[in-house]
Design a binder for these strands. Sequence first.
DNA 1: TCCATACCTGCAAATATATGCAGATGTTAC
DNA 2: GTAACATCTGCATATATTTGCAGGTATGGA
Lengths: 113, 113
Amino acid sequence: MPQRVHIARELAEVFKLIAHPDRIRLIEELRTGECDVNTLAEKLNLPPTRLSQHLSLLRTARMVEERRLGRQHLYRLAQPQIAGWITDGLAFVEARAPAALAGELREVRELWS
Amino acid sequence: MPQRVHIARELAEVFKLIAHPDRIRLIEELRTGECDVNTLAEKLNLPPTRLSQHLSLLRTARMVEERRLGRQHLYRLAQPQIAGWITDGLAFVEARAPAALAGELREVRELWS
DNA sequence: TCCATACCTGCAAATATATGCAGATGTTAC
DNA sequence: GTAACATCTGCATATATTTGCAGGTATGGA
């Protein structure tokens, strides 16, 4: 039973790391491969500083990996399968707010697959 | 692109709901079927009030459903597959803290399957 | 060397979450 | 009705997360 507590704590950390709208879009954006911070910031329409903070969090947790190319920092998912796992969670979004979101869910599933 | 923001927000809500060690154990405890609050509190070794607060959160989010039997409130997962999805996340725990946790991970996977 | 570019870090304020406790509600048994 | 039980709700405090901003580091080019 103590091991359940311990592992539950670790799992919760992983969920917390993902539990932010910016970071979810960030991870889905990286599903197709590595990208530099400014390009990401543009694609996600976020201030680069904020993105950098999210990346720093994910980097510390080893959820993303960094590679430097000249003055750019290229980021990629440490475990690319994580993007697919996250979109699997869309099934549970469906239950919370069913009717109105159906169309959007379809589009996003297409986009993030 | 706006739909991505919207859906990402919804997904983040789901992740936040799960992102707590007590709630993860709670959901895994319910994977085998419905249970009343006091029994859950004992099994999880948590004060009943605290458990009740977690349940209230999950209930509002329609992640669990309630049924009353006498003075007991029986709770069950609204979508039982969510327990399996959460344990799929153990794969990403492995990357964060690999060596030391290997044994515990094996035990918990067994327990939560 | 000096400047611009591309990112990062630290800090403080705003916001959100978690927790404990006191008291309320609904149910059953006497 | 009264008492005990099972659980819920509200509120205050403690703690954690998010965000913006100001200033810092590293790289490449003139």
